[in-house]
Structures are given as structure tokens and as C-alpha cells.
Simulated assay, not measured.
Amino acid sequence: MADLVTDLLIYICFGIVMFAIGMIIGYQLLTMHYSKRFFMLAKVCSDADSVVPLVDELERET
């Protein structure tokens, strides 16, 4: 019985650690994705000398 409880505790801890690692990796990937899109959009706005691409991007996102 003690082995079962120990194994269950190990699996629960392993699951919590994997969940935390997944959340951190997901956050980093989304941050990289949206920062890349922001810089690309900033370049388009700079080239067009207008904020119209920014408004179009906001319309597309909402």
C-alpha cells in the first residue's frame, strides 16, 4: 500500500512539473510569435507612413 501511495505521489508531482514546463514554453512561444508580428507590422506602418495597416491588423484580430 505504501508503494502505491509513493508511486501516485511521484506521478502527481511529475504531472505538475510537466504542466509548469508546458505553460512556460507556451508563453515563450506566444511571446516570440506576437513580438515578430508586432515588428513586422511596425515596419509596414513605417514604410507606408500611415497607421492604416495597424487598424487593419486590429480588425483582423478582433
Rank of each mutant, 00 (worst) to 15 (best):
G26Y: 12
C45P: 01
K43E: 15
S46C: 06
A48R: 09
D47L: 12
I25W: 12
I24H: 03
I25D: 06
L41D: 07
A42K: 12
H33K: 07
Q28C: 02
S46T: 13
D47Q: 15
L30S: 14
L41P: 01
D47R: 14
V44F: 09
V51A: 11
A42M: 04
H33M: 01
A48G: 02
D47Y: 11
G22P: 03
I25C: 08
R37Q: 10
Q28H: 04
M23K: 04
A42R: 13
V44A: 10
I25N: 05
I24E: 05
F39A: 02
L29Q: 15
D49A: 14
V52K: 09
G22I: 01
G26W: 11
S35D: 13
Y27G: 07
R37P: 00
V52F: 09
G26C: 07
Y27Q: 03
K43G: 06
Y27D: 02
Y27S: 04
Y27H: 11
K36D: 05
R37D: 01
D47G: 04
Y34C: 01
S35M: 10
A48M: 05
S46H: 15
L29M: 11
K43Q: 11
K36I: 01
D47H: 10
M40L: 10
R37W: 04
T31Y: 12
F38H: 07
M32W: 13
F39K: 10
A48P: 00
L41W: 13
V52E: 13
C45E: 09
K36V: 00
Y34T: 08
C45Q: 11
Y34N: 02
G22V: 03
D49S: 12
G26M: 08
L29R: 15
A42E: 09
S46N: 14
Y34M: 03
V52I: 09
Q28T: 02
G22H: 08
V51N: 13
L29W: 13
T31P: 00
D47I: 11
M40W: 14
D47S: 14
R37I: 00
F39V: 04
L41F: 11
L30C: 11
S46G: 14
V44Y: 12
S35T: 13
D49L: 10
A42V: 02
M32S: 07
S46K: 14
I21E: 00
I24A: 09
M40Q: 15
L29A: 13
